[in-house]
Nucleic acid binder design. Structure first.
Lengths: 229, 229
DNA sequence: AGTGTTGCGATTGGATGCAATCGTGTCGTA
DNA sequence: TACGACACGATTGCATCCAATCGCAACACT
C-alpha cells in the first residue's frame, strides 16, 4: 500500500504530481522521518524523473507543510515543535466537527456499517501501523459524505503534518487509553446513526482534544522522533 | 502598492518565491479576476524570470487554492462556486475565533489602540479598495499576537481565496450593513480590552457568519465576477 | 447542412547543462 | 591547542532547448 513501483512506463504528462503524491505517501508512511534531508537528485532517481518535476513537487509539499525548504540549502521533512503540534490539534478540534457535520447527512446505512466494522477492527489490533491505518480510515470514512473540496483538503493536510507524532504517540498509549479511543469511535457511529449531529461534533472535538492533551504529556516525542523499520 | 518593478538586478537565489508572492499579491489585488487564464511565458516575462520558477510558483499557488492547474492545458485563477465559498466561510467561523484566542493574550495597549484607529478609519471610508484594505488590516492586526505559523498561514489562505468575492460583495452592502460591520469591529476591540476572550470569539464568529449569509443572498456574485480598474 | 477528422500553431511538460551558493575539511596562525 | 581563513566538492537555482499535448480551424464526408 505504501509507495512502491509507480515508475516505469507511463508518460501521462504530470510527473510532478506523481512525484508529489508518492513522496507525500512516503513521508506519511514514515519512510522519511521528520528532519530527514531530502536531496533532489535522489528523489528524481527514485521516481525516474528529472530534478525539475521533483522541485515542483517539493514546492507543493512545502505548501502542504510536509517539507521545509531553505533557499540554496535544501529540503527537509518538516519537524513540528510541541507547540506547533498542539496548535494543529487545536485547529483540528475546531474544523473536524464541521467536516463531520457536512458529511453526516450523506452517510447511508452501508457507510455506517463500514464505520462500525472499522471501529471493531481497531479494537482488535495491536500492531501500530495497522492501528494508524485503521484510525485514519475510520475518520476519513466518517468524513466521506462531505463532497467538500477545500475543507477536506485542509483536514487531510492537518492529518499529514501530524502523522509522525501520532505514530510515535501510538506506541506510548496503554490499554486504558486505547479502550477510550475505541469507545469514542463507537460513540461517533452511534451519534451518526441517531442523526444527532451536535453529539457527533462534540465527540469528535473531545476525541481530538484528549489526544492533544496526551501528546502534551509526552514532549519527548518531539525532541527526537525517529521511525526506523 | 500592486506588483510593479521588482524585476531588474537582484539575483537573490529564490525567483520562484518572489514570483509566487508577486503573483499572489496581483491575484488578491484583483489584477487577475477568477477564471483568468495564466500563461507561463507572460508571467515569466512580467517578472523577469524563466518559465521554470514560474511553474514552481504556480504549483505553490495551486496548493494555496488560488490557482487551478490542468495538465497539459494551463493555469487559471481559481473560481469558487457559492457552495465552496460558503464552505470556506464556515471554516473561517470555526478557525478564526481560535486564532483570536491565541492572539489576544499577547496584544498590548498599543496594539489595541491601533485596532481602534483602524475601526474608526473603516467607518469613515466609502472607497471600496480602501475598505477592503482596512478590513484585512484590522483583522490581521487582531491576530498579530499569535506567533503561530500554521494557523496564521491557514487563515491567510482562506482570506486570499475568498478575496475576489468579498470585493464584489462589498460593492453591494448598504449603509445599514456597513454600520453593523463597524459595530462588530468595535465589539471585538471592547472584548479584547476587557480580556473577555469568550466574547471576542463569539463576535468574530458572528461577524463571519453574517457575511456568509449575506453572500449567500447574492449568488450573482459567483456567476461572473469581474473586476476591471 | 451537420458532423467527424485531420493538420497546424500555441502552449505546456520535462531533460540537460551551467552558474551560484552552501557546507565541510584542511591548513595556517596566534 | 583553539580559532579563523580558504579552497574544494556537493548541491541547489535557473535558463535554454526539445518533445508531447491540446485547442482550434479548415476540410472532407455522409
Amino acid at each position: 500500500m505504501t509507495a512502491l513501483s509507480a515508475s516505469s512506463g507511463t508518460r501521462d504528462g504530470n510527473a510532478s504530481v506523481r512525484v508529489a503524491d508518492a513522496l507525500r505517501d512516503a513521508i506519511v508512511a514514515g519512510d522519511f522521518p521528520p528532519g530527514s534531508r531530502i536531496r533532489q537528485e535522489e528523489i528524481a532517481e527514485r521516481f525516474g524523473a528529472s530534478r525539475v518535476p521533483v522541485r515542483e513537487a517539493l514546492k507543493m509539499l512545502e505548501a502542504d507543510g510536509l517539507v521545509t525548504l531553505r533557499a540554496n540549502a535544501g529540503a527537509w521533512v518538516s519537524r513540528l515543535s510541541l507547540d506547533e503540534c498542539d496548535e494543529v490539534y487545536q485547529t483540528r478540534e475546531r474544523v473536524e466537527p464541521l467536516l463531520l457535520r457536512l458529511s453526516a447527512p450523506h452517510l447511508d446505512a452501508e457507510a455506517l456499517d463500514r464505520l462500525e466494522r472499522l471501529a471493531e477492527q481497531m479494537a482488535q489490533t495491536t500492531e501500530i501501523e495497522e492501528f494508524l491505518r485503521l484510525d485514519r480510515d475510520f475518520h476519513w470514512s466518517s468524513y466521506a459524505g462531505a463532497d467538500t473540496l477545500v475543507l477536506g483538503d485542509l483536514v487531510r493536510r492537518l492529518w499529514n503534518t501530524t502523522q509522525p507524532y501520532r505514530r510515535a504517540y501510538t506506541r506510548l498509549i496503554d490499554a486504558h487509553s486505547q479502550r477510550i479511543v475505541h469507545d469514542e469511535h463507537h460513540m461517533i457511529v452511534t451519534a451518526l446513526r441517531d442523526g444527532d449531529i451536535e453529539a457527533g461534533e462534540r465527540v469528535v472535538e473531545g476525541h481530538i482534544r484528549r489526544t492533544r492533551r496526551l501528546l502534551a504529556q509526552h514532549p519527548e516525542v518531539f525532541t527526537a522522533a525517529s521511525t526506523t523499520p
